[in-house]
Write a protein that binds this DNA or RNA. Structure first.
Lengths: 213, 213
DNA sequence: CACGAACCGTACCGTACGGTACATGCCTTG
DNA sequence: CAAGGCATGTACCGTACGGTACGGTTCGTG
């Protein structure tokens, strides 16, 4: 099919991007019930007919919103070279804080709530889309980071996926679900404290014994 | 307030329980969109008027469903006494498997999807209810288990909450969210393997060095 | 300038839902 | 047996949404 598509920035026109941005704002502000076609058209100063012309139907609109949001996020590649143990630890902590920040972000929460609310026995489309577009980049970045640490002798593991999932669990715990259910996200101080503790625990599980005593 | 209420099975009449059971079945089968008042009345052979008489409105119905479901779950208290290390390890693994099984259960997933879909900027009612009714018992059971292990010298920690959250993260990882988004739950074999690994990791973080070499 | 494409705003249609009202029937109670 | 409460089932109402159709406007193009 479209296996040769080289750039994913061209999936939508600027006008459509603006409309999707408005739709995201609406979703964040009022949840799924506030995301009506009429509401989007009114907020974006466009006609419903254009919405249906561009996105097909409401589900296409939701999928487009997910794709658009994921296209906005650039996953910063960790600068390679030869990081010291301190650098690498700092990288891990930064990743942990970034992860918690992203998961607690308004737009991410709204889209996750949307996909989860839609998910049912048969409706796995949005969910899988969200996993693909939102989760995979994070996992790729984390796996690259972990393997970098292994190459430099700071970490020891055989299964990258297992190591990543452990790190994810230590960092996120049940925070994501609490956020989704409406709990107020933690402040920046708690966030970094959690990240530090999680990375510390992760090193005790997967770090080579380069740490003091 | 009702601190002396010995039995919480009396919150709803048997007839109402049957209706709630039907409503849960509908929710599990078809998601939130299938949970209409007319549908519930038809499936339960009752009238809409009775529904509104018993539960007030639709939100009251949802809250009653959560309360009813949580009232069905009995948290088995770990048998006290003096467990050996093997017993205690087995208890932890059982807890881990139970936790994953509960979180992956159809009813739990459906209710969580419902509450998450409803959750928004102001709508935190159902979410908090779900946290209180569904989460607290599990946490209490786990904390009791952890402190039992500490009393017997198998574990060493100062902050029970921190230890519990670590155990939770190691056991659950991102499984709950994947379930919620529509991923098929893991089979029993994967489940117990995950539980075993998680408990092993937890011992390496919080266990006294009673493990071999 | 003339033409056409794209788009906006609005009006419209069918449907489906939450909630209410009412008529019928069952079952307890005096 | 009579009467009243309680539940069922159906019909009904207002509303709001997804989706479509249409007239008017803007803008690029030959």
């Amino acid at each position: 099919m479209t296996a040769v598509a080289p750039l994913e920035t061209e999936t939508f026109s600027p006008r459509q991007n603006a409309v999707l941005e408005c739709a995201l704002k609406l979703l964040v502000a009022g949840g799924e019930k506030a995301l009506t076609t009429a509401g989007i058209a009114r907020a974006a100063n466009c006609s419903k007919e254009s919405l249906y012309k561009w996105f097909g139907d409401r589900d296409g609109m939701l999928a487009a919103m997910i794709a658009f949001q994921s296209s906005k996020v650039r996953t910063p590649a960790p600068r390679h070279g030869a990081p010291s143990l301190e650098d690498f630890t700092h990288n891990l902590r930064t990743f942990a804080v970034d992860l918690l920040t992203v998961l607690g972000g308004e737009v991410s929460l709204a889209l996750n709530r949307l996909a989860i609310g839609q998910a049912g026995p048969g409706n796995t489309g949005l969910g899988h889309l969200l996993i693909e577009q939102g989760r995979q980049p994070i996992e790729q970045r984390a796996r690259a980071l972990l393997e970098l640490g292994r190459r430099h002798g700071y970490l020891a593991f055989s299964d990258t996926r297992q190591a990543f999932e452990t790190l994810y669990g230590l960092v996120v715990r049940d925070a994501h679900l609490r956020y989704l259910l409406g709990d107020a996200p933690d402040n920046e101080h708690e966030l970094s404290a959690r990240a530090e503790l999680a990375v510390d625990q992760f090193f005790r599980l997967y770090g080579r014994k380069l740490l003091k005593d």
